[in-house]
Simulated scan of single mutants.
Amino acid sequence: MNDMRSARRVSIRDVAEAAGVSITTVSHVLNEKGRASEETKKLVLEAVERVGYRPDPAARSLRTGDTGVLGIVFRPSDAISGSMNGTEFHIRVAGGAATAAISHGYGLLHMPSPLATARRAFPIDGCIVVSPTKQDPVLTELLKRKIPVVTIDPEHGSNRTSGLVARDDVSGMRALLDHLESTGARRLLFLSGKDRNSWLVESEEAFKAWAQSHGIAAVIEHVSETSGAEGAREQAVAALRTKPRPDAIVAATSRFATGIIDAARSLGIAVPSELRVAALSDSELARGHETPITALDLHGDRAGRDGVEVLIALLQGKVPVEHAAVIPSLRIRASTLRRDAAG
């Protein structure tokens, strides 16, 4: 009998035979259901160890709908997509989410877009979607599958999910622009991305509103996120050849900011005395650049942790915990520290 069992997977039926109870009783004990006596529970658990039974996670998830796994999907074009080669913000979100998931006894599955994997149904209890776009098709698909969803950043223009981790991007942009104005900046350019997520849309609106209220000339241009530093460099070269040229450029990402500094160097424009450069998202690229770049720390690790906490609350049928919106922190560095600001 033991040799036969070793040649196949030990089943719940084997446990029932070894314990001298019904399959239903074994199922109730293992799933902590029913009203089995303590003596019966002991018999079943001893039989489990004796025959070497180990539950099949896939089969269990089919019965209970509980996989013990949370999913996370990153939506921006320059975010993590099938690898860990992405922006630092998204890597920090993934790290914070993974740490929180493990602390609650869950695994975290970094998923490619569900739209590109129709033939693979990933078993997850719930999903975090990072920076969804307007009417995001990934959210549509997950909600159609009736999977609980939490977003990090709202879906721009709608509110289709029960859970949200928000960030005050308006305050972040204002703090950055106040700093640039204090250095003497009067002609501003915002080199934004082309993705239409709430981070970029709200940042652009805040940029325009601030400039109007301060009577400062401000222009917004867009660069594809996937073009990276080189795309930003080409756009910045063209912008810096205009008259009058910008005296401060805000870049959506640190990669864009490095391209802008390269463009300025190629045209003989000094940073920061003639051109201040800052980024809306901090990273090692900004901190470690030969001219360290002023940037906003978006606290991705906290956003990831909060996302898991809200999702688990949803899974437990609770009203999600209200988290205060993440406030970006301004990290002032050499790229904007002009000492001889003029009026």
Rank of each mutant, 00 (worst) to 15 (best):
A175I: 04
R174T: 10
K146T: 01
A36N: 14
R186D: 15
E284H: 03
R241G: 15
V201H: 03
R187T: 15
L191R: 07
M173K: 00
T336Y: 12
A313C: 08
S81Y: 09
A185R: 14
G52C: 02
L315H: 06
K318F: 06
R265S: 13
K146P: 00
V69F: 10
Q235A: 15
D247R: 11
R120T: 10
L296Y: 05
V15E: 06
A206P: 03
R255G: 15
K134G: 08
L285G: 10
G34R: 02
R265E: 14
A100M: 15
R331Y: 05
R5A: 02
I220E: 10
R333C: 02
S224E: 14
V10E: 09
N31V: 00
L109G: 00
A279W: 03
D56I: 04
D178V: 08
A263G: 03
E322T: 14
V51A: 03
L314W: 01
H299M: 13
M84W: 13
H179G: 11
H110C: 15
H90L: 08
A36I: 07
G288K: 07
P272N: 06
L109V: 00
E230G: 02
V130N: 03
R245I: 12
F207I: 06
L315A: 03
T291E: 03
T258M: 14
E225C: 08
I260Y: 02
A238M: 15
R302L: 11
A341G: 15
G95E: 13
I293T: 10
V149G: 02
K41L: 04
V319R: 14
A232L: 11
A295P: 00
Q135Y: 04
V237M: 12
A211H: 01
G300Q: 09
R5Y: 01
I269P: 09
A116S: 12
M111W: 02
N31F: 03
E88A: 15
H179L: 10
K42L: 07
I260E: 08
T140H: 14
V201L: 11
A251S: 12
R338D: 12
V15Q: 07
T294D: 13
M1Q: 05
I80D: 14
K33C: 08
H222I: 04
I152Y: 06
A18Q: 10
R50W: 00
P272L: 08
S103D: 10
D125L: 00
A286Q: 03
A252W: 12
L45R: 12
L285I: 11
L285F: 13
D340M: 13
A341E: 09
R255I: 09
V93T: 02
F89T: 05
M1D: 01
D297T: 05
R331F: 04
L337W: 12
G268M: 11
T258W: 08
